[in-house]
Amino acid sequence: MALSRKQPGPPADLLPGCNALDTMIAMCAPKTLLSVSLQSSPDAVRDVLARVAQTVAAAGQNPTATNNIELAMAEALNNVVEHSFHETAKGQILVEITLDEDVFCISIRHDGTPMPGMRLPEGRPANVGVDSANLPEGGFGWFLIRSLVLDAAYTHRDNWSELVLRFARLPEG
């Protein structure tokens, strides 16, 4: 039922280097709230976002913070559909949500094209101080994600990319 965290390659105990992602995973208690696979298409993203929002809301996240998670996840998943699978619906994306006491840890895994330079974009704010004819129509995604998460980590190993976004659990009141 739950997706295994194990990835292809040497077992974790043969990799004593303990990278940032492993540290992050270790910090997240293995209480899995949602584990789903989706096709790389905008409609499938919309469906899975509804499940993500439902899942974190059921775990006590207040409506504003639930929308923050849904928005960051929308940006992250839309980027995967657009840039890792080049807007073809042929890829599979795995989404897993775990909850530590007060932190949601959300993993997005896929075997499509990795991030350029194998690292996360800086996410600079788009320049809106220009003539309206030259206003940007995109490039907001990573700025929004970085504005909404506690932190973000990316790893690429054995052809698989994993993005882990963490969010504070913020109950009502």
Partner: peptide, 16 residues
């Protein structure tokens, strides 16, 4: 009730 950066971009494009 929900807009993402693609939706935002579409509104900007509609203005342009």
């Amino acid at each position: 009730d929900f807009i993402d950066s693609s939706g935002l971009g579409a509104i900007v494009a509609s203005m342009k």
